[in-house]
Each structure stands twice: as structure tokens, then as C-alpha cells.
Simulated assay, not measured.
Amino acid sequence: MKKILVIALLLMMSLGVFAGCENNKETSGDSFSDIKERGYIVMGLDDTFAPMGFRDDSGDIVGFDVDLAKEAFGKMDLELKLQPIDWSMKETELNSGNIDLIWNGYTITEERQEKVSFTNPYLANRQVIITLKDSGINSKKKLEDKKVAAQMGSSSVDAINNFPDLVSSFDGGEPIVFDTNNEAFMDLEAGRVDAVVADEILARYYISKRGKEKFNVADEDFGKEEYGIGLRKEDKEFLKELNSTLDELKKSNKGQEISRKWFGENILR
């Protein structure tokens, strides 16, 4: 009886290991076939990042990237489901399988390329310095002894930290980080910080809504960059399909129409 129990136990353990290997194989492979089979895609985004993805007055998530994604996945016969996430946890959300991709003004950086695969770029951007109109801040050097704000987990923080000597000269010796860009801009307007570093696309949109007469964008910036869409490293087929669809959309009248709707001109690249 003991021998039978031992054999049975060993058999169960071996089956468990085999099943574990099989499950791991399924979850670590390209997920595009599974996405097509279920018929929908889950897109992770920061729902405060206007005009790329944000909530309108009715609470609906709208934006340039949202419109572009709807069009792209419509061409793939996939329903788009939007999943707001903590932007500082975006790569974790992606690689744990909670979302299928990151598409929301997602800047391509070397550090992020180690964690995700990016599509071809579709927009150009800069990291700009925004201040109140009469601040006198028009360059990076003028940020010495100033309180400088940015969004936590954003490429703005990465861009700032590329200048460690400058950062050490800030009031507090580091940038002040907020969960959202909106919170950073609110503190700027209230005079609690002296400058905000943010994506130019977001900054220009925010300024246009809050009043151009209130703000100044410095001549000098923290660098140029490009936006891409982030996928899991193993999703090679998905990446190929999305690149093809995105390239087609950038050349189409619909893609240009979406760009003009949000920016007044075609800025797709």
C-alpha cells in the first residue's frame, strides 16, 4: 500500500510539473492569437493625460490616442476596452497580463525598451518647461533654487534626471513628483511650485484650456522624444500586425482627420 501511495504521489507531482510547464508556455508566448479569439483588446492608459486620453465632462474617456486606437483595432475587428492604470506601474500592469498594451503618449526610452517592445514612432514630442507668465524662467539654468514639478513615472522625470548637477541645485535637491500632470499644474497655478516639466503636447493643450495669458513655455527644453505603443516582449506577431495597421492609418485620410480634430493639423509621423 505504501509503495502504491508513493507511486501515486510521484505521478501526481510529475503531472503537476508538466501542467505548470504547459501553462507557463501559454502565458509566455505571443498573445495575439488569444486576443483575436476573445475578440477584444485591453488598452492601459492614464485617464488624466489630455489630449491623448482623459475624461470629458461626462466622465467618458476620450482623446487623440483613444480615437486612433479605436480606428486601428476596428481594422483588426477587435473591440477596444480602456483600462485606466497607475502610470508609474504601467510596465508591471502590462507584463502581469492585466492589460494588453500601453497606448497613451508613451515615450520611447532606452530604459523602457528593456521592459517592453515598442511600435514604430507615430508622434514627435519635447519635454518643455512651463511657468507662470512673469516668472522670468526661460532656460534650464534659471531653475536653480526653484521648485520643479513633474508627473511620477513619466519620461519628464527621466529627462530632468539626465541633468544631475542641475537637479541637485533645485530647491529640495530633486524634482517634486505628482501622481498626475493635472496636480502638478494646479500647484503651479497656486504658486506652490515654480515650474512644471511636461510633454509639450499635453502642456500646449492644458495652456489652451486654462488661458495662454497665464503661462510661459521656456525657449530651452529637456530634450526631444517620440511616442510609441508598448507591447510585451514576446508579442512579436502582435507587434508586426500593429505596426502594419499603424503605418496604414498614418497615411490614411481617417488618421489625418483624427489628428486635425485634436491638434488643428496633421502631426502624425
Rank of each mutant, 00 (worst) to 15 (best):
M1E: 10
K3N: 07
K3Q: 08
L10C: 15
S14T: 11
V17N: 00
V17I: 15
G20F: 14
E22K: 07
N24E: 06
N24K: 06
K25N: 06
T27H: 15
S28A: 15
S31N: 13
G39C: 05
Y40G: 13
I41C: 09
L45T: 14
T48F: 08
F54S: 09
D57V: 10
G59T: 15
D65T: 12
D67W: 05
D67C: 01
L68E: 02
F73S: 03
K75M: 12
M76Y: 05
D77M: 03
K81L: 11
W87E: 05
M89V: 03
E93F: 13
T107A: 15
E111Q: 12
E114M: 11
S117C: 00
F118C: 03
T119R: 01
T119N: 02
A124N: 10
I129E: 03
T131M: 06
K133P: 04
N138S: 10
S139R: 00
S139C: 02
K140Q: 03
K141D: 07
L143T: 11
E144K: 08
K147W: 06
Q151A: 09
S154G: 09
V157H: 09
N161M: 06
D165V: 15
L166D: 10
S168E: 13
S168W: 02
P175R: 08
V177T: 09
N181E: 14
E183M: 08
F185L: 09
D187T: 04
E189N: 09
A190H: 14
A190V: 14
G191R: 05
G191V: 03
G191D: 08
V193H: 10
A195C: 05
E200R: 08
E200K: 06
Y205G: 00
Y206C: 04
I207V: 09
F215R: 05
D219F: 01
D219H: 02
I229R: 01
L231P: 01
E234S: 13
E234V: 08
D235W: 12
K236N: 10
F238C: 06
K250A: 01
I258H: 03
K261L: 12
W262T: 07
E265N: 12
